[in-house]
């Protein structure tokens, strides 16, 4: 009833743990069997291990938080050798989120990940917290076009491109990624934001800016997902402040095939599970048989 096919991959339901908020699935599997989820996006992976940023990494805001983790991750080789086998215990779609600092990084990363058992690659051209680390590729459509085109040439897995809300024109960005060969899109990553510590008279974050997420961004994220869904012909996975099954339904009605749930896992470890259960109950109440009956009805 909740299952959905995206680029030939079958998801048992449209709820996916978002990259950077769900570790490698292990932590939330302590609370419930994460195999019940539609999928899990890994923490952003880079060719080489990254220690991430120093200083404050998270800062709470009204209805959300800012983060500046800086793509801390064990590196792709370590992921493939020591993390992925463990993740494969989970009977769910595994999506490897691939970050990079250069075109060559992305190409090499996609080549390596293509040789593994992962189900999809989510190309992260939207991380705002690393210098030359992704978002540089996600602002200008022409730059993104080139990265997606080159990665697509070597990528043997369905390629999902994760868009930044900081793109100059989100619809043009989506269209260019589609034209370059993206199999599907996910949006939105975090909004570039900042906070100032007035006691220290200094920015809260060492990088000055950080990425804003949580329910506070949901209305803007929803608008962007809606506009992109109206424009492209490839599946769109919506995200941005999804906290409840009702939020997930809004994104689905706006046209999303599936949703990613991020920051709200922090406030309640059962958030993804409760969204799956809420969607199931909604379908039964409404007498719906398939998500396509409500997808994109707006």
């Amino acid at each position: 009833m909740l299952d959905v096919n995206i680029c030939g991959i079958n998801f048992k339901n449209p709820v996916i743990g978002a990259s950077g908020t769900f570790g490698f699935g292990e932590e939330y599997n302590e609370f419930y069997n994460v195999s019940m989820l539609g999928g899990i996006c890994t923490k952003g992976l880079t060719l080489n291990k990254k220690e991430g940023n120093n200083g404050t990494r998270i800062f709470e805001t009204p209805s959300g938080l800012m983060n500046s983790i800086g793509l801390q991750n064990p590196g792709i080789d370590e992921f493939i050798n020591n993390v992925l086998p463990n993740m494969r215990r989970f009977d769910t779609v595994i999506i490897a989120n691939l970050g990079g600092g250069s075109l060559e990084d992305y190409i090499q990363g996609a080549e390596k990940l293509s040789k593994t058992s992962i189900d999809m690659i989510e190309l992260n051209i939207s991380c705002p917290n690393v210098k030359n680390g992704g978002m540089a590729f996600g602002i200008k459509s022409e730059v993104a076009f080139n990265v997606v085109k080159e990665v697509k040439k070597v990528c043997k897995k369905p390629l999902m491109v994760k868009l930044s809300p900081n793109a100059e024109d989100i619809v043009d960005m989506a269209l260019k990624c589609e034209e370059a060969g993206a199999d599907c899109l996910s949006l939105v990553n975090t909004f570039k934001a900042m906070a100032i510590d007035i006691k220290r008279k200094a920015p809260v974050f060492q990088n000055i800016t950080a990425g804003l997420s949580g329910p506070c961004i949901k209305p803007i994220a929803l608008r962007m997902v809606y506009e992109v869904c109206k424009s492209v012909h490839i599946p769109v996975i919506g995200m941005g402040g999804i906290d409840t099954y009702e939020d997930a339904l809004e994104f689905i009605m706006a046209g999303a095939y599936a949703v990613q749930v991020g920051s709200s896992n922090f406030k309640n470890p059962y958030t993804c599970k409760e969204i799956v259960e809420g969607l199931q109950a909604y379908m039964e109440r409404e007498g719906l048989n398939d998500l396509s009956e409500i997808r994109g009805i707006i």
């Binding site: 932590e27 220690e51 990494r57 998270i58 800062f59 983790i69 801390q72 922090f266 470890p269």
Partner: peptide, 20 residues
């Protein structure tokens, strides 16, 4: 300061002799 409290978000990293 922590966000997830379970090791998933890497928001509360500290520096150690063995990295973060």
């Amino acid at each position: 300061k922590m966000a997830c409290g379970v090791g998933a978000c890497l928001g509360c990293a500290c520096n150690t002799s063995d990295g973060k």
